[in-house]
Design a binder for these strands. Structure first.
Lengths: 251, 251
DNA sequence: ACCGATCCGTGAACCTGATTCAAGATAGAA
DNA sequence: TTCTATCTTGAATCAGGTTCACGGATCGGT
């Protein structure tokens, strides 16, 4: 009897529907004004039903993040499968991150909120574990690539572990997102395209590690060309303005 | 008549007292359990009085952050006045940050929360402006140092502005704090001393910029010696375990 | 088709905690 | 001392997250 399975499926569909409703409301009114009763209303269910799915509002926010992280992982998987040098792939991880967050500015905001002590501790332990688990592949792919680069002779760890190297790249990435989303910082600093700047910093850091082949940091054209190549070959679907970028790079 | 001034001073003292009470409560029970009524109680004033100072709970959190930022700036000023090479001073900014956050783990947590869309927008515009302003010197000092390094011939900007370079360092720093405070990340990655690791990443990034004199990334002893020197010369008051570190470095 | 048992969905009521504001206290001026 | 302006108070209000007693749907057995 597949009746159990059907119920299960319907339950999951409903959960997805709640999350979609929540995402809509966040887009419309911002995270600040998100209300549980509104989410239920928008999804056309009662509040009580909403609470059959999520132990608390914070729990729902984690669930929202988990869905996004899974999409995020998809992008990283594309990079991992890409036929390119280890250095290019590491750079492509950065580009993936940049495109993802640019596409989903809400995601970063929610994620930032969710990893806050207050919210994190207010969510259920199960959901927290699920989120951490959903995140795992990202770290694993990066570490895997670093190890591959070492094996290929492109990179020397020089006393660090692959994990430790990945922490550096990761920190730069997260920090960039934080700054981009912080009120006015980037404007004050006259940074037009913060994510392009991030790409340069990433290349700088990778050069610092001595990750071969080294790139010429000052070569703007090469940077744009590479970003464009990654965007085109790996993320044509995410990058509506690829053509515009191509024009810019050509100029 | 100095009666106006006296009132003013008493008002400020009371504000400080509220903030101190809030900080105490956060230390005791965590940010999650912070309640306005408790703060008032602890400071021995009525709730209404508390609201004479802060437009909302979020506003109070910003005020808390502002106080800490001012202390933070003090540390950066010490670095700026330090007699050392530009590269050493830039590194010392990193050490200052690391020591500060290590000393005040709460500060980072609150700051992280406060810069969240939800909290940020729930605070008063005045307080937000005040916080941004309090932060300004940090950026200015770093940018100033970068310019000085360029003038001294220690660094070439290679098409970037000083502000843009500072964004890279800043991103790495903020990202590190985020990772350190995120549940389990550093443990999973077998990172014993994440801030020491940060120092290495910082040196790596600075090497990537070609900031002279370049350092040997793999030289752990030199790294420890430099951290120790900065700690001793600039922050003897913040670094109770300097002697322990000295022993380690000597071994 | 009917029946009881079980499970599911509901939303009004509840509860916590932030915020307000009318009333009372206080300090300065005359 | 008395009057007024200002400050302080904390009980009352309000918002919104969370619960749970109720009614209706589903299902297996007859």
């Amino acid at each position: 009897m597949g009746t159990k399975e059907r119920k299960q499926r319907q339950f999951e569909e409903r959960e997805h529907r709640f999350l979609a409703a929540a995402r809509e409301l966040i887009r419309e009114d911002g995270l600040l004004k998100l209300q549980m009763s509104r989410i239920a209303e928008r999804a056309e269910y009662a509040v009580g039903t909403l609470y059959l799915h999520f132990a608390s509002k914070e729990d729902l926010l984690l669930a929202l993040t988990i869905e996004q992280v899974r999409e995020h992982v998809e992008l990283f998987l594309r990079v991992a499968r890409w036929e390119a040098s280890s250095r290019e792939r590491m750079f492509a991880f950065g580009v993936a991150d940049m495109l993802f967050v640019r596409r989903n500015p809400e995601h970063f905001r929610i994620g930032q909120y969710v990893f806050t002590e207050v919210v994190w501790n207010a969510a259920s332990a199960e959901r927290r574990a699920e989120l951490l688990e959903a995140n795992d592949p990202i770290g694993a792919l990066v570490v895997g690539l670093i190890n591959e680069a070492v094996d290929a002779g492109d990179l020397m760890l020089r006393g660090l572990t692959a994990e430790q190297v990945s922490v550096g790249v990761w920190a730069l990435t997260i920090g960039t997102h934080n700054l981009v989303h912080a009120e006015g910082v980037m404007d004050d600093f006259n940074v037009r395209d913060p994510y392009r700047l991030f790409c340069r910093h990433l290349q700088t850091l990778l050069n610092g590690y001595g990750w071969n082949p080294l790139v010429d940091i000052a070569d703007d054209g090469a940077l744009d060309t590479l970003i464009l190549r990654v965007s085109r070959e790996l993320f044509p679907d995410l990058c509506g303005d690829c053509t515009a970028q191509a024009a810019k790079a050509a100029a």
